[in-house]
């Protein structure tokens, strides 16, 4: 799925500069605890989260996350957006809640990129 499709589907807004994101997004995970994300997310996923600080972008960077979607209309501060632009991780915000945003994207074909916690994290 293209980034622009995701933005359209969840009626979101792209917060980072518009680059040409060639890489498709095929799966996602929703979580607010960064340790859960680090433990369970598969590489190249989209992350839906209600957490809104620079650590989310750093977590994305470490865990090879392709894009971050902030739910419930959350807007990250400028420092967070700056890091995301620098690291080329697109940020999207949507007014939808976590459940609804996840539901829409899952129904539209995004797979669950959340591993059971006892799996290897690689």
């Amino acid at each position: 799925m293209k980034l622009t499709e995701i933005v359209d589907l969840i009626n979101g807004e792209l917060l980072t500069q518009e680059n040409e994101y060639k890489k498709d997004i095929t799966g996602a995970m929703g979580a607010d605890l960064m340790s859960d994300v680090l433990a369970s997310i598969k590489p190249e996923a989209a992350l839906l989260t209600g957490l809104c600080n620079p650590q989310v972008v750093r977590t994305a960077l470490i865990a090879d996350i392709r894009t971050i979607i902030f739910v419930r209309g959350k807007n990250p501060d400028r420092e967070t957006i700056r890091i995301a632009n620098e690291e080329e991780i697109p940020l999207i915000t949507t007014n939808l809640g976590m459940f609804e945003a996840c539901g829409i994207l899952h129904q539209a074909g995004l797979l669950s990129y959340e591993l059971p916690a006892n799996d290897d994290c690689a």
């Binding site: 680090l38 590489p43 620079p54 650590q55 750093r58 977590t59 960077l61 470490i62 865990a63 090879d64 420092e79 690291e87 994290c121 690689a122």
Partner: peptide, 29 residues
Amino acid sequence: IHGGNASSNIKRALLRLGATPQIARRCGI
């Protein structure tokens, strides 16, 4: 504010040194 900065740099260094993305990711986490 800078939490994770060092780790990002470590991950990048490992990739530059030729580590596989999997190894770099695991070390990064």
